[in-house]
Structures are given as C-alpha cells and as structure tokens.
C-alpha cells in the first residue's frame, strides 16, 4: 500500500491513442484556437440557449468502436446516430436506454442535451446510460471520465456533469454506454382512464402519458406478463393503439405529484402531454419559463463552467441554466 511502490504513470491502455480521437482533439485545438461548437443531428438544436454564430462548427467522429454482447457495454464515437448504433446492437438482442429519441440524433448530441425520452419512467434517465466519456477539454486535451465497467466509483463522477452540459465543459468524442436486453414483447394502449389509479395498479410500466383526458400506456417485457398487464389496462378502459401521441414542442419539468393537477393550472390551458410518474409536461407556453434554481446552485453552475472552460470557447451561447423551451425533433 505504500505510495513508493506505485508506478508514476497510468497503465499503458489508459492513454488514448485512437488516431480518430486524436484528430478530433486537433480539430478542436488548444485554448487559443477560438470558439468552437459541435453539431450532431440538429434534432434539439434550439435548446439550451442560442449557439454563437461566430463559433467554428465541427462534428464529432462517428462509428461503433467495440461491442461485446456478453459485457453489455458498447464503445461508440459521439457522432454516431442512434439509428447506426441500434443497427449494431439489435442483432445481439440488445439496445441502449436512449429509446424514443429521434433516430437521426447523435449519441453525443442526446447526451449533451441530457433530456430523456418518453421511456424515462421504465428505462431511467439517459444520464444513467453513460459509463465512460472521452472528451476534448477547453485546452484541447483528451480527457477520460468514468470507467468502462458497468460499476465504478473511482474518483469524482464527471460523467454525470457532462450529461446535460450542452458541450459547455468538454466536447464528447467517444462514450461507453450500458446496454440492455431488448424486450420480447411490447405494446401501446390508450383510452380514457384515471392515470393515477391506473399507475398504482400496474407494475413498473415503461411509459404513461396523459393529456388531461386520455391515457397512453407503453408496456414491454415477457409476452405473458405484457398480456396480463395489458388486460389490466383494458379493464380500465384502454385499448391497443399503434403508438404515442404527438408531443407539443415545449417541455417543462415539475414534481410528478403535481401532474394530476396540470389541467387546473391556468398556465397549462393549451394542449399538453404529461409523462406520468416522471414529472415532465410537454406543452406550449408563451414567454420564458420561470427560473427555479436557487442562487447557490446558479453560482455553482457558473463556477464549474469557469473552471472547465475559462476561455469561454466551448459551445459559446449555450447555457444549461437557460431553461429549454422547445425541441424540434419529435419523440
């Protein structure tokens, strides 16, 4: 255990030598290389503030680097689209928990925006999918955050801060994601029902949406289980439908318990779709959303940005604290 025995440098395989990633780092350049912004599939381009047009626009490298089904992890470059990734995982009966997001969105893009799709209730937030991230820092260096294994508490958890950072702390180059088995059966149902009552009767539904009148329910799993849960829903007045409703472009985050009262709130008079059990409302709101964060949280956000990018060169104009308003891509 004595520190003297420990060798000075990292093990050889910990130093990133992939020429594709090194080329991306060169493209980003060092701290004096000026403002730079990354575009993915532009499916959520208008979220998180307005990109500074003066910034040099680049793309992250793409391609699946390694997929080992028995490991249930996949190493993929950030510029890979969700479609391309899924095509590699599907033959092995696996997928990543980035479902319900636009197929042409990139892995790096959806992680940088950090907003989960409509399956968050069952699949968990997309932030939990990220195991390891390799990103280019404001100094133009390749940095590794997290680790490649499914479980890891080695050091501070930088991966969590990168998800939803809109590329303001580092530019994602390559990530290792957790994969999951694809379900054998899945079904959408919809109908007029009390969402709270139905939610309490089902065991861990994957998605439950409500527009103030109708409920949409998504179930997946083993065929007999899905059939039994679907029968419960059918007895409550739901029937099979091809898929979820269209979402209004706006999105707000609220405590799940308040969703039952959405229709009573004058601010939500228009069309809305609420993700039950999750606390997201898709709707149309005039003007900016109310600022919720306390001053200490705002100060911490500013401090993190300042320390990771003192030059203000990474995705200038973007700010995770500026409340997302509309997303162009439909789930």
């Amino acid at each position: 255990m004595s520190a003297a025995l420990a060798p000075v440098g990292p093990l050889p395989d910990r130093v990133v030598r992939d020429p594709v990633l090194l080329a991306f780092a060169d493209q980003v350049g060092g701290q004096d290389a000026g403002p730079v912004a990354v575009q993915g599939g532009r499916t959520q381009w208008n979220l998180g503030g307005t990109a500074d047009p003066a910034a040099r626009l680049i793309r992250a490298p793409s391609g699946v680097v390694a997929f080992e089904p028995a490991e249930m992890t996949v190493q993929v470059r950030a510029g890979t689209t969700l479609d391309e990734l899924d095509a590699v995982l599907a033959p092995a009966g696996q997928r990543v928990a980035l479902q319900g997001l636009p197929a042409e969105a990139t892995v790096g893009g959806v992680l940088s925006v950090g907003l989960s799709g409509p399956m968050r209730l069952g699949h968990g937030p997309i932030r939990d999918t990220l195991l390891q991230a390799r990103y280019v820092s404001a100094e133009g260096l390749l940095v590794t955050a997290g680790g490649p294994t499914v479980k890891n508490v080695t050091g501070f958890d930088l991966c969590r801060v990168l998800v939803g950072s809109y590329g303001t702390l580092g530019l994602l180059a390559e990530v290792t994601l957790r994969t999951r088995p694809r379900p054998q059966a899945s079904v959408w149902l919809a109908g007029r029902a009390d969402p709270a009552d139905l939610f309490d009767r089902l065991y861990r539904p994957v998605s439950m949406l409500w527009n103030g009148a109708e409920v949409w329910l998504y179930l997946e799993g083993y065929p007999d289980d899905v059939a039994a849960q679907a029968a419960l829903a059918e007895s409550a007045g739901l029937s099979l439908v091809p898929g979820p409703p269209r979402f209004p472009a706006g999105r707000r985050s609220v405590p799940p318990a308040t969703l039952r009262h959405v229709r009573l709130d004058p601010a939500h008079q228009g069309h809305f779709v609420a993700e039950m059990g999750v606390g997201v409302v898709h709707g149309e709101w005039p003007g900016a959303s109310p600022a919720a964060a306390d001053t200490a949280v705002v100060a911490l956000n500013r401090q993190i940005k300042q320390l990771f990018d003192p030059y203000g060169r990474l995705n200038p104009g973007r700010d995770p604290m500026s409340v997302p308003t509309t997303r162009t891509g439909q789930p």
């Binding site: 937030p125 930088l158 991966c159 969590r160 939803g164 606390g279 997201v280 964060a293």
Partner: peptide, 25 residues
C-alpha cells in the same frame, strides 16, 4: 456554508447535474 438543493423532483432539471456530481463525492 451556503444551503443548496441539488437536483429536484422533476425530471432532468436545468443546469449541470450537481446531484450526480455530489453522489459518490
């Protein structure tokens, strides 16, 4: 010495995931 609420009951709150940074720190 300041008091702060990291994360929140709603999904994916705005700003950096300070909740995630704090867990495991």
């Amino acid at each position: 010495g300041e008091l702060a609420m990291l994360g929140g009951l709603g999904a994916d709150p705005d700003g950096y995931d300070l909740r995630g940074a704090f867990v495991g720190s």
